[in-house]
Nucleic acid binder design. Structure first.
Lengths: 117, 117
DNA sequence: TTTTTAAGATGATTTATATCATATATTGAA
DNA sequence: TTCAATATATGATATAAATCATCTTAAAAA
């Protein structure tokens, strides 16, 4: 349930619910209403990645945009920071794109990562 | 002058001036008032790094904080994303900490990077 | 010395984001 | 079939960030 998630991570329940709605709509999270209802992830959901979530909640630009917020900055016309950060940035992007929620959950199950849930 | 910088980067002049004030106060940027006045960077300023700027404008936490915004996440208690991103993140941090403004300006002078100024 | 041009300081306004409130829809259980 | 529990939807409020407006201070030049 939203409450079970919101409390341990210190996010207001109603706000979390609002954030979850577009994820449900985009089939990244599943939900059932009524008593014994709540949010869950089925086999298909678990194959989604962190990037999928970011693209729904924020937007694609959040990641591709210039760190100096220059709209003219791109690969051909890189700003000074672009060159310095492009490698690490692509690395992060790849990681978030490849790692499925299932894999992340597995890390928690193994005790290699922790969540306050 | 603030106007000369603000226009090509599409940031309102008054807002840019407001952002520059703490940088002047922290001796990252220099300024002179009156006619023929404006903002500039002296030899000492040019040795400052991007991290110095970020720490003044935003704050140190902007960089060290957990990507999932979990206050309990740290090196001993890492969230699932922490492990995945820590390497690239440290890499970015190091780059921004080591590169001086002088070096960045040099890249622009060499034509390896571009600014709309 | 006066005027003009710039930064500095401060507060108000706008806009975006986060949060709250309330009503509706769905579903399990009594 | 009714009730209770939970998500869904929508709009209102609060807070933070960005932007605007106005005045003050400093310095160069006439």
């Amino acid at each position: 349930m939203a409450k079970d998630i919101s409390e341990p991570i210190n996010v207001p329940q109603a706000y979390l619910a609002k954030l979850l709605q577009p994820l449900v709509k985009e089939n990244i999270v599943s939900s059932v209403r009524g008593p014994k209802g709540g949010f869950y992830m089925d086999d298909e959901n678990l194959e989604k990645t962190v990037i999928d979530i970011i693209f729904v909640i924020d937007s694609e630009e959040k990641f591709s945009s210039c760190m100096l917020s220059l709209d003219k900055c791109n690969e051909e016309n890189p700003c000074p920071l672009h060159n310095i950060l492009v490698a690490s940035r692509n690395d992060i992007f790849q990681q978030l794109k490849e790692k499925t929620i299932r894999e992340l959950a597995h890390e928690v199950a193994l005790g290699n990562a922790f969540l306050p849930l």
